[in-house]
Amino acid sequence: MSTETISAAASAEATERSRRVPGGLVLSWRQFLYWYTFFYRTWRGTVLSAILGPVMYLTAMGVGIGTLITHGLPDGVTYLSFIAPGVLAAMAMQNGIFEGSFTVLGSVKWAGNYWAAVNTPQRPQDIMFGTAMQGLARTAGMSTVFFCAMVGFGTTHSPWSVLALPVALLTGAVFLFPMMAFSITLDSDQPLTVVFRFVMTPLFLFSGTFFPWQQLPEWMHPIAFITPLWHGVELCRELTLGTVTATSAAIHIGYLLVALAGGVALARRNFSRRLYLHR
């Protein structure tokens, strides 16, 4: 590599500017850029599975199982159209949980990049938000691909459908922040597996994704209503089927936003505790 020449004055000027610390948004953005650099080399490897995954999923679960189903769905709705928006929201949740798990645990436990970052102007909340931004960016990418597949499979029946995409992203965010809050407290990856199996899988399976929640036994209905995923699934489905109303949208979005705020607060607190060592 050729030696670059930067004048001493220019270098001093850059130092001088770096001393004036910007606001939290810029600091978070710098953390995001770290992750961009980190993942830049490898994103191509994930593209194929990101595209093939949704197509295979919709084919198997929607078309395949759909051939067996004879009753129990809302009038005039095919199983494919029923399941697609549900899976959109559920996959966003899954992505949110994954992005909030190994990335965070690895940073604090194996790679050490968080411990490096705290010695720079980065604050724990900047590190947290920057990491969340990259998790959300990836979730958005995956959701967009899935949404395109949904359009391709003809499951978007209303002009409101496009709004299912931001709602799915919101659903992902609702799970991303609490997961980050949990992962930052850990020292091993075993508890993550427990969360995947004990929290994520049941949510995925019982939040009205694969069959109408009305099929659940009566006593489980309140449980479904308090899970954020149920709200995400319902709203996405109402949007793509065109059955959405102002009231239902307000309730679902309101609930998701409250859950999001709680998750963000928890993540901020736990990041500060761990990275500033006031355990």
Binding site: I6, S11, T37, A116
Partner: peptide, 19 residues
């Protein structure tokens, strides 16, 4: 590089200093 970017230093400055 990534460490220098946390301080908001320009890429060219980081390259020169890193070397």
């Amino acid at each position: 590089h990534v460490y220098g970017r946390y301080f908001g230093l320009p890429r060219a400055v980081i390259r020169e200093r890193a070397a």
